[in-house]
Amino acid sequence: MHTVVAIKQVPDTSNVRINPDTGTLIREGAPVIINPYDVHALEMAVRLKERFGGKVTVLTMGPPKAAEALVECIEQGADRGILITDRKFAAADTLATSYVIAHAIEAIQAEEPVDLLLFGKQAIDGDTAQVGPGVASRLDVPLISYAIQIEAFDPAARRAIVHRRIEQGIEVLETSLPALLTVEKEIAAIRRAPLPNLIRAAGYQPEVWSADAPNPFDPASIGIKGSPTIVGKAFTPPPKEAGELVHVADVGLAAAVSTALAKIAAAGVVATLPAGAKGGSP
């Protein structure tokens, strides 16, 4: 049983600061984390390993600093970490990113067969949710996005039953293996890393893959060349003009509320409030 998990190191978007003059992200000192959904993907992989034996490989494409994220994954129970890093990969959009990850997975698969691919449902820096489906298409494996539960898993029969959240409810799907799942946080709850993992991680050095070695990537499919989309411009959203404020402390409760209702009625937005009403007077 061999699972490959794709993780991304992202700025903690609850803490990002934007330079108001340039409209760009202030990267210095910005805390980075493993994309929250990816942590749950890894946890799912570790649980499957505990049940069926085998191994968990984690890979990430990113700057050299992303090696830290892989070490954290070893703490959480991964066996092998691969950092794909090279200046030539810079400025990749989702098409180029999915190429690099798919090509890397093919190389891993050539060494030892892969039964399952786990991705986060989306990365919180861009929220695109495109890389997982893109990789599934490239590798021509079944895709199950927004997975919330693995109901049954049978590596020998090469079948799995997976729940995914869709707009109408929860869809229960049966798929052949290998398959690619993009996961929600419910897929598996995070546990505290056990001590032996921490010890192993302390001395762990992830493997580093470049654009040329050990597996050459197609130069036309990576980085800027491989990315059909470019950022034309970036800007901070313009503030809207603030509306009127009424203070309960100044005008009293009933008057504040009747002013509001009169304005709403005047705007004619709610059929259940008769237009022209002056607000319910006290």
Binding site: P11, T13, S14, V16, I18, G23, T24, L25, I124, D125, G126, D127, T229, I230, V231, G232, K233, A234, F235, T236, P237
Partner: peptide
């Protein structure tokens, strides 16, 4: 992008 902190035209 970046959690709504920035707009980008692609």
């Amino acid at each position: 992008t970046f959690g709504g902190n920035l707009m980008a035209t692609i």
